[in-house]
Design a binder for these strands. Structure first.
Length: 519
RNA sequence: GCCCCCAUCGUCUAGUGGCCUAGGACAUCGGGUUCUCAGUCCGAAAACAGGGGUUCGACUCCCCUUGGGGGUACCA
């Protein structure tokens, strides 16, 4: 049997991190078994602007390298791949269920149903619809219609026996049929609901393995009933553990951002991303730009594989020590058997360290390619990009070393090299320049480096040390003021590297400018 | 309420009856290195939810309790 898996997102305007994890596992499983991964769009509800709502999802998956074999943009012979274009298929299926007696027309009003539901709850027994307004023949239907009632189509669920699902993650799960509701599959206006649509689609698209989040486990019986009643064979089910909130077991949701921001790690990662976004003029809105949404990571300059690798570890592990995988290693080793069954909470800080790991593997040239767009967007560098600029940025990248965690971090470390007029951070001035004796030391350092040859880290270091030694001071007494003078801040790459990259002219100019802040 | 799922350090996890004095990673804390930061090195603290069984022997199997989560829609 050919393995065919699918991911069926609703076009909501953004790609959620939990959704990505589901997509990833489906993709990995298909890859592992030489199968196909299908992308289907669940747009049964009215979508105001499909294009706008869909694009971030498609772009996000593409960025992550989660490619689909059939679906939007690539086609396929089991389409269409948009539920909105498949309404007639669902209606046909609903009619078939009606004709074969597995569904019935129900004329109850929502209020009548609600009353029954409340009654059952008050009595402490499970709710089971009385089927009081069910029309099992034309005569009854005509009568209800004469009363001005309108019918929906409900599943006529079995009321005895059990259903046993052999879930690939959870093992055997048993449901009693009598606890299952007669769910509505078609509204009075003829439109069909999710559960019917999903089953019909999965069957039409020959999905062999339904791999989805645990929230769907309880939905499985009613879907299984539809499969059976329509004469379809059941796919293999695998219910993945939920991706939970940071430090919690509750399902991760895009709506509870304020709560997540109270989590220190989450807040830290968010703030770091926000800073970069602001520097490249994104002016992001927090409901579409935050660590729960994939765009955040792309826009800030994370590596897609770092996100994939981290997300894979959320609910799956190979063994007791392997954490980093190449794409092919992962595909080779992925299996549903090693998927965990308990919820996994999303830890942005761990993603951060996975990202750090992969970033440090890159060559300077690779980092340059990733980071240059950020410099362009921020306006620190203009088109056309000359070899001179490239060389300069490459030097900055090398000097910055593993301080660069994401591509956007280049903005933090390149700014003071590229900016025309350096603005000194007032706090740094107070801390490092406005100290007695600093002016004198700086002046002597300026004299030393005016003529030092060559203008290189080693020679600059010995120049600085000789100034310090001859004045009976400590290295820190001079090195910190110099750093603030030439970079405007207290943190950065090695000082001698900074001076060298900046060059003699600029270094001297900045040192002289800084004298006015000294004592 | 009812149904289903889940339960090892704060977090991700290893563990499939004796290899467990419970291993690794992130985070945390302490220390070394360093011009700052980042890094790096060394070290510390940190868990089998509770109670019953089964067994010569339970983190591992069974039951109960407790806790957490999901579902229970003319949402997906």
């Amino acid at each position: 049997m050919t393995v065919r898996t699918r991911f069926a997102p609703s076009p909501t305007g953004f790609l959620h991190i939990g959704g990505v994890r589901t997509a990833l596992f489906n993709w990995l499983f298909a890859q592992r078994h030489g199968g196909k991964f299908i992308l289907r769009i669940d747009d049964t509800d009215e979508i105001r602007n499909l294009e706008t709502a869909l694009e971030p999802i498609l772009k996000g998956l593409q960025w992550l390298g989660i490619t689909w074999d059939e679906g939007p943009g690539v086609g396929g012979d089991r389409g269409p791949y948009f539920q909105s274009q498949r309404a007639d298929r669902y209606a046909t299926a609903a009619k078939q269920l009606l004709d074969t007696g597995f569904a019935y027309r129900d004329f109850a009003t929502p209020e009548e149903l609600d009353a029954e539901r409340k009654e059952a709850q008050a009595a402490g027994r499970p709710f089971l619809y009385s089927r009081r307004f069910a029309a099992f023949d034309e005569k009854a239907a005509t009568q209800f219609e004469a009363e001005g009632r309108r019918a929906v189509v409900r599943l006529k669920m079995p009321r005895e026996g059990n259903l046993v699902i052999d879930d690939k993650v959870r093992g055997q799960v048993t449901f009693a049929w009598e606890r299952e509701q007669d769910h509505v599959i078609q509204r009075a206006d003829g439109s069909c609901l999710y559960h019917l649509a999903t089953v019909v689609d999965d069957h039409d698209m020959e999905i062999s393995h339904v791999i989805r989040a645990e929230e769907h486990l309880s939905n499985t019986p009613r879907q299984a009933f539809i499969y059976q009643s329509l004469g379809y064979t059941l796919p293999t089910f695998a219910h993945l553990p939920l991706v939970a909130e940071p430090g919690s077991r509750t399902k991760l949701s895009k709506r509870k951002l304020a709560k997540y921001l109270k989590n220190r790690d989450f807040a830290q990662v968010n703030e770091h991303g926000m800073k970069i976004a602001n520097q490249i003029g994104l002016e992001p809105e927090s409901d579409t730009f935050n660590p729960v949404i994939v765009d955040f990571y792309r826009d800030v300059g994370y590596l897609p594989w770092a996100v994939d690798n981290y997300l894979t570890l959320l609910g799956w592990s190979l063994d007791d020590h392997t954490e980093f995988f190449t794409r092919s290693q992962l595909i080779e080793n992925f299996s549903l058997e090693r998927v965990n069954s308990s919820p996994a909470s999303f830890d942005p800080k761990k993603l951060w360290t996975v990202q750090d790991h992969y970033m440090q593997q890159l060559s300077t040239a690779e980092k340059l390619d990733l980071m240059m767009p950020f410099l362009l967007k921020s306006g620190l560098v203009d088109e056309p990009i000359t070899d001179e600029i490239k060389g300069l940025v490459a030097q900055i990248i090398e000097a910055s070393g593993d301080r660069l965690k994401v591509a956007g971090d280049i903005l933090t470390y390149a700014t003071f090299f590229l900016v025309k007029d350096l603005v000194l951070d007032p706090a740094a001035v107070t801390k490092r320049l406005a100290k007695p004796g600093t002016a004198d030391l700086l002046k002597r350092f300026i004299e030393h480096i005016e003529a030092v040859e060559p203008f290189h880290p080693e020679t600059l270091e010995s120049a600085l040390k000789s100034v310090v030694e001859s004045s009976g001071k400590k290295v820190g007494d001079l090195i910190h003021p110099v750093r603030v003078a030439v970079t405007g801040t207290t943190v950065g790459p090695g000082l001698y590297d900074c001076l060298t990259i900046l060059g003699r002219e600029k270094s001297l100019a900045r040192l002289r400018d800084a004298l006015e802040f000294c004592q």
